[in-house]
Design a protein around this nucleic acid. Structure first.
Length: 506
RNA sequence: GUCUCCUUAGCUCAGCUGGUAGAGCAAUUCACUUUUAAUGAAUGGGCCUUAGGUUCGAAUCCUAAAGGGGACACCA
């Protein structure tokens, strides 16, 4: 039974006592009190008063919040109440509350309960602004005790599984999530100010597309068909460009059925935006601008601490081509980087596990991952991606081996991916076919599926368009200096916890 | 998926080379009308994650499982 714990039982008894005394432990219709911040500000002037007179009984305040500490000292008590502004101290004693109320309630109102305190401000002997209560009412009884008051809740697992407790015990956690919310809100404002329209496209896809990833599969009962939770909104957003929306964005969840670690959660939030009559160079510009906007509005410094690194966001961010990055940053000879045979040999010589049948572009990607990615600490735009690893990007008019594509790296991590979109329907059709072939040949179960409806859409003509995706979770990690994605997700994915019962055979 | 470490009271943690369970906070009772992790006194509280094994004897050693942390791999 969920409530069998002795401490919970003790508190349930208190609930019963309260009811028998005619006090509702879960009353309704109580308005939120004045925030503790406001209370402090309104009482600041009391500090200036003479010793022994630091009080103003003429102004009444009503505070509401959860009790975090209670110190009963016989006929008087101090308690700390936590509201959305923070902690505030209240004082209550036998003589200033209603007759008999103090003795009846002092043990029935305890740490964890949510209360309403009404009274006036004063300054204690130790100089703390405190509410002297004339009234102290229970707002909501807590029957589960809070974790230890000094160490709080440390256990990572409990913090993620019981995020509400984490928030009660570790207020800085809430602060990070408030910041996350602000970041998302600013991004919306930024794109709207640029004339983008926010749209919502399907989560249930008949064909998973727009990324190389394994999808979750689900079932539609009425239709009797499989659906895939979306791995990316890309193909739908581009259909909207075909339809004549010139600038769209979507901030929403993607689902990928892959491993979990400190940078991967099965569901994560992506910003994707598509911009007609623009190319990848315009994207680089607007991305740079977006970062400047975010840092400024969040009051963050240009040089940001992240883990053990210092990241310099001074504009403009460096731009390097994929090949040059491998050569100049990765320290790989240009000859090696431009020959399949030499690249393969080099990778093997450096103990990088690679498949034999990879094309040059894929080998370059291996070189990049192994020798370059970690070194891109300050924001860096990597441009001119190999065409083989960019199945949805437009081929460069100057160099057919290269796509008009870039990725932004910060602190060794990919933050954004953007390109001039492929709008030649026949080229797109061929590339899908190649992906399907790769799927069969190499058993690459992340390779893309053929999406004939998307090709059909392109066949009506899509304006030259640039599109980009930014991983919101990783962006928030960077801006809140968190090294685990779980610390920027309110409810990170967890395995089910109680499975002591039957083990299923393999 | 692999390696590695962790799981003991509500919480934070001790528990040695195996001898039968400890502290602090929290709780209960008492004292205390300006405390700051309040204080002082007393009391209660345990499926030592689970299942096997070794042993006269297991929280402790071994094996497996579950959950979690970290690293790597897969993955953009």
């Amino acid at each position: 039974m969920i409530f069998e714990n002795q401490y919970i039982q003790e508190r349930i008894k208190k609930v019963e006592i309260l009811r028998s005394e005619g006090i509702n432990p879960y009353p309704n219709g109580i308005a939120k009190g004045v925030g503790s911040e406001t209370f402090y500000k309104s009482c600041q002037h009391l500090h200036a008063k003479q010793e022994g007179q630091k009080r103003d009984e003429s102004v009444e305040f009503r505070l509401t919040g959860r009790l975090k500490f209670v110190r009963i000292m016989g006929k008087a008590s101090f308690a700390k109440l936590q509201d959305s502004d923070g902690l505030v101290q209240i004082y209550y004693n036998r003589d200033d509350l209603a007759e008999g109320y103090y003795n009846k309630m002092k043990k029935l109102i305890e740490v964890g309960d949510i209360v309403e305190a009404v009274g006036f401000g004063f300054v204690t002997q130790t100089g703390e602004i405190t509410l002297h209560c004339r009234e102290l009412n229970l707002v909501t009884k807590s029957i589960s005790p809070l974790p230890e008051k000094f160490h709080g809740l440390q256990d990572q697992e409990l913090r993620y599984r019981q995020r509400y407790l984490d928030m009660i015990m570790n207020p800085e956690v809430t602060k990070n999530f408030i910041k996350r919310s602000k970041i998302v809100s600013l991004i919306r404002a930024f794109f709207e100010s640029k004339g983008f329209l926010e749209v919502e496209t399907p989560m249930l896809h008949p064909i998973p597309g727009g990324a190389n990833a394994r999808p979750f599969v689900t079932h539609h009962n009425a239709l009797g068909i499989e659906r895939y939770l979306r791995i990316a909104p890309e193909l739908y957003l581009k259909r909207l460009i075909v339809g004549g929306m010139d600038a769209v964005f979507e901030i929403n969840r993607n689902f990928r059925n892959e491993g979990m670690d400190h940078t991967h959660n099965p569901e994560f939030t992506m910003l994707e935006f598509y911009w007609a009559y623009k190319n990848y160079k315009d994207l680089i510009e607007i991305t740079q601008e977006m970062f400047e906007y975010l840092l400024e509005r969040l009051n963050l410094p240009t040089i940001l601490e992240y883990e053990d690194k210092q990241i310099d966001f001074s504009a403009p961010f460096v731009q390097v081509s994929y090949i040059d990055a491998i050569v100049d940053i990765g320290g790989v000879d240009r000859e090696i980087a431009q020959s399949s045979q030499k690249a393969l040999a080099f990778l093997k010589a450096n103990n990088v596990k690679v498949q034999e049948n990879l094309t040059l572009g894929y080998l370059q990607a291996e070189l990049f991952d192994a020798f370059v990615e970690d070194k891109l600490v300050n924001p860096t735009f990597i441009t001119d991606f190999p065409i083989d690893i960019s199945p949805l990007a437009r081929r460069s008019d100057k160099n057919p081996d290269v796509a008009e594509r870039f990725e932004l790296f910060i602190a060794g991590k990919e933050i954004s991916n953007g390109f001039s979109e492929l709008n030649d329907p026949i080229d797109q059709y061929e590339r899908f076919k190649a992906q399907v072939k790769a799927k069969d040949a190499t058993g690459d179960d992340e390779a893309m599926h053929m999406d004939t409806d998307y090709v059909k859409a392109l066949s009506y003509g899509m304006t030259p368009t640039a599109g980009e995706g930014i991983g919101i979770d990783r962006l928030v990690m960077m801006l809140t200096n968190q090294s685990s994605i779980r610390d920027v997700l309110l409810f990170p994915a967890m395995r089910p916890e109680i499975t002591h019962s039957v083990k299923t055979e393999e």
